[in-house]
Design a protein around this nucleic acid. Structure first.
Lengths: 94, 94
DNA sequence: TAAGTAATTAAGTAATTACTTAAATATTAA
DNA sequence: TTAATATTTAAGTAATTACTTAATTACTTA
């Protein structure tokens, strides 16, 4: 919802790793959890934070919940960062 | 130093406000502190975190310390965010 | 040198965050 | 309906973070 919630969600290394994983395609909560040492409820809580920040979608199919990236909020982060780059070398990245 | 340290530094609303303030030009620690309710040591600690994350420079001139934006690390954040936007509406922002 | 100003460091505390295990919910399949 | 699987919720705890006030350091100026 807020840019603050977005940055808070992005501030955790494990949550950014989840986002990275989802770049290769949608995954179930269980498949995501397999990539971590942490317990499944721990991963589920991270997914909940990402979902509340609207950085991911969650769609339930049967007993599975599929997670996928929601790119719309990344736009807001991009806009925020670009402020600090628009007058520098940032432009050649786009 | 690390992208993790960068995101941790950016995850605090007061620290992002400091960065916003510095967009209008360099400021001393004291001038920055005037924009906050919080104590000066509190602000100083935030400045220290931003400095360690290389999001700002600090230059001492006499008894004052001038802070200014360091745009180089914003590049890294921009690159990170762009991954999640390159295939979407992100391009028309650049 | 002594006093005043700017800023940081130190030490402690309250609030928040990231985890854990146990329990609950929902779905599937025997 | 019973058992198994997938996921989340609940409740508690350890670690981290964001503050506070007091003390310290560094510089300036009377």
């Amino acid at each position: 919802m807020s840019i603050n919630e977005t940055f808070k969600a992005l501030s955790d290394e494990n949550r950014r790793k989840i986002l990275d994983l989802l770049q290769n395609g949608d995954l179930t909560a269980g498949d995501i959890a397999k990539h971590f040492e942490m317990s499944k409820p721990g991963v589920s809580q991270h997914l909940s934070i990402l979902k509340n920040a609207e950085l991911v979608y969650a769609i339930k199919k049967g007993q599975y919940v599929y997670y996928s990236l929601n790119s719309t909020v990344f736009q807001d982060v991009l806009k925020w960062v670009i402020q600090f780059n628009s007058t520098t070398k940032g432009e050649d990245l786009c």
